[in-house]
Design a protein around this nucleic acid. Structure first.
Length: 377
DNA sequence: GTAGATGATTTAAG
DNA sequence: CTTAAATCATCTAC
């Protein structure tokens, strides 16, 4: 843009402003001047008339002439006052146009998105990246790395990936916003030398820019939310899906259950032990075992008859194991171990039986199923 | 597709 | 908190 057009542009802005409110503007100038210097107001009026005349005639002048005039105008002592009045007029007309659109209440949609992102751990305090990877590694190392822990760490990894993308994008947007804002501000400040721009106007422009950028950010947040939701439905809900324990695991649990039928409440340590034996590596190791025992107790109690066969089977198994253990102990040393107090009775019972061992129990199994003595029905 | 089995979740009580 | 009981949701075998 060459200088002449720039000047014309600038003055065009002035012209519009004057057209919009030339009466008030002129009065304002006059009032302002009267306030200060009263007497020679007429002379000043003449000055302004000259200026306006020069402005109107500007297109007839050559470039050099215009440059000189521009410089003259820029340095004119009346310029600040004139610009300030013009700014005022612009402000007033602008207010009537923009009006109530100014205030900007926090968008509920945006707040919802923000809250969700915070809740999902996407925004908010950093806890992803290294620590997530470490946790995943720990989970994998903790046990045989079951499907669950794999899925979980996979989920965490994906989430932190989303998180990272979200943060870099957000940062990019913020940076772009800042850059653009400073650029516009500099431009406006620069232009405020050649056309009337009030600081308020610049401020408003900054506000507009920020709003635009935040609406872009909202799109980012929206798509991030969507990504998280998809991830959730794919992983967490899949994780919820029930998977039966392995045959071996059920075996181990049943063994414990029926050999502790009088008190089928494994301690925390026992649960952990069982979980380890069953290679259950769910997020909360003990819970699956607790669930199993809870279900087993209630279902056993509800229908003992149905479980009788199973009970006998496992009783026999335990008896065999116990007998074997006893045999080993007898052949090697003579220091019987002392099992847990609560279960001792039951164990001893089987150990006593183990003298004539498996035969009696096996026959028993098909004739008279042994009801557990201590269980209330 | 269905019935029964089974692991998980919810609810309520202690 | 743990547990019993009810219930849900899925798996499995047919």
């Amino acid at each position: 843009m060459d200088d002449q057009t720039r000047i014309m542009h600038a003055l065009g802005g002035v012209g519009l402003g004057v057209q919009g409110g030339v009466q008030g503007g002129m009065q304002g100038v006059q009032v302002a001047m009267h306030g200060h210097e009263g007497a020679d107001g007429d002379a000043r009026k003449q000055d302004i008339g000259d200026i306006l005349h020069q402005i109107m005639a500007i297109t007839d002048q050559s470039l050099d002439e215009a440059q000189a005039k521009k410089h003259g105008l820029n340095c004119h002592r009346m310029k600040p006052a004139l610009f300030s009045v013009l700014c005022e007029i612009k402000e007033k007309t602008g207010l009537s146009i923009r009006g109530a659109q100014e205030e900007d209440p926090p968008d509920p949609q945006l707040m919802r998105l923000d809250n969700m992102l915070l809740a999902e751990g996407v925004s908010g305090p950093e806890k992803g990246g290294g620590s997530a990877a470490a946790a995943a590694a720990a989970a994998a190392a903790a046990g045989g790395a079951s499907d669950n822990s794999i899925e979980h760490s996979d989920y965490r990894a994906k989430l932190s990936q989303i998180r990272q993308i979200y943060h870099t994008e957000l940062e990019k947007y913020e940076q772009a916003c800042n850059e653009f804002t400073t650029h516009v501000m500099n431009l406006l400040r620069e232009q405020s030398r050649t056309r009337p721009i009030s600081p308020k106007e610049i401020e408003r422009m900054v506000g507009i820019i920020h709003r635009k950028f935040s609406s872009i950010q909202m799109q980012l947040k929206q798509s991030t939310c969507e990504a998280v939701m998809i991830l959730r439905s794919r992983f967490l809900d899949a994780r919820r899906k029930r998977r039966n324990f392995s045959k071996q695991a059920t075996e181990i649990l049943n063994e414990y259950f029926y050999s502790h039928l009088s008190n089928p409440y494994p301690s925390e340590e026992a649960k952990e032990e069982l979980a380890k034996k069953c290679s259950i590596t769910v997020s909360q190791v003990g819970v699956a075992v607790s669930n199993w025992f809870g279900n087993k107790r209630i279902r056993y109690k509800k229908n003992i008859g149905k479980f009788q066969e199973e009970a006998n089977l496992y009783a026999a198994k335990t008896a065999v194991t116990a007998a074997h253990a006893a045999a080993v102990q007898n052949s090697q040393a003579s220091s019987p171990s002392t099992p847990n107090s609560g279960f001792q009775m039951k164990d001893e019972e089987f150990q006593l039986d183990s003298a004539e061992s498996k035969n009696s129990l096996l026959t028993n199994m098909f004739t008279a199923p042994c009801l557990p003595p201590n269980v209330t029905v």
